[in-house]
Computed example of a mutant assay.
Amino acid sequence: MRTDVQRFAVANLLRRPEAAEVGGFVVGFDPATTSPYINYATPVPGAEPADRDVSALIEAFRERGLKPRLEFAPDAAPAVEHALLRAGFTTEAVHEYMVCTPATLVAPAGHTVVETPVTDEDYTAIDAALSEAFDGEFPPSPESAARLRRTQEGGGAVRFVRASDGGCAGAAICSAPADGTAELAGVGTRPAHRGRGIAAAVTAALAATAFDRGTRSVWLEYSGEGSRRVYERIGFRPTGTRLYMSLEA
């Protein structure tokens, strides 16, 4: 399953508007944004990069004025971390990820209504709600709302719970599948609506949608013990870790 997640990471980056293979790495760039969370690289499973490969990777970022940055499951490419450390990369974070399959998925308790966005107003409301849920780390913008629509219309899925004012109380996003798995991300609830089962509802709805389309597994990362318990209740199980590394200027 660890290799499945890393193979997904490779296939997903290859879907970026500008993607390239550099040595044992795949680099994905989106010219519409300079965000390091969208423009990054990942190694192919089993990669054993030489120093010259890492130098070429760094140059691919530098020539675009971007910070060299990688996200990957280290167990799928054990030699990569040491090669990056030799080149001066440092660790940003290590996150545990969880995996759900059709056999483990459990419908959450309650009757929360989960919707699929349709209008531009829906996507704008979801974008704003997720920005608020993550304390403004990802500012809302027409470009990020458009990316949500592209996800929904490009084989992935976006689901949300509507607030009483007609906006968005909480939402989440699932990528289009690759190599039989899909990533569920951006699970967020506006502070005023927390504690009502919204995160569990949208997460379970997205996983069920992916499985209905033939996906074998769905994976996500969690941010704390509270969210871990939410995901465990609906069938996600801890499986491995993902490593985030970058090189400062």
Rank of each mutant, 00 (worst) to 15 (best):
E221C: 14
H193R: 03
D30G: 15
D75K: 06
S164T: 14
T33E: 12
G28P: 01
E59W: 14
L220P: 00
R147G: 07
A178T: 00
P31E: 03
A20I: 13
Y222I: 11
L85S: 03
G214Y: 12
V187H: 09
D179L: 12
T241I: 14
C168M: 02
P139R: 04
L14K: 15
V10M: 04
P74G: 10
P36L: 11
A60Y: 09
S175D: 15
V94E: 12
F25H: 07
A163Q: 05
E59D: 14
P108K: 11
A73F: 06
A172C: 06
V114P: 00
G224M: 07
G224H: 14
E59C: 08
R64T: 01
E59G: 01
A11N: 08
V106Y: 05
R150F: 13
V22P: 08
G167A: 10
Q152V: 12
G226K: 12
A178E: 02
V106P: 05
A201I: 07
P31Y: 08
T33C: 07
S131A: 11
F138G: 13
A210F: 07
T241Y: 03
R213G: 15
R216H: 13
G240R: 01
I38E: 06
G166K: 05
D75I: 05
T104L: 15
A207N: 04
K67A: 13
V113Y: 03
H193F: 14
N39S: 08
G186I: 12
W219K: 01
E143K: 11
G23P: 00
A11H: 10
A79Y: 10
G166S: 07
D4C: 09
A9I: 05
S144K: 10
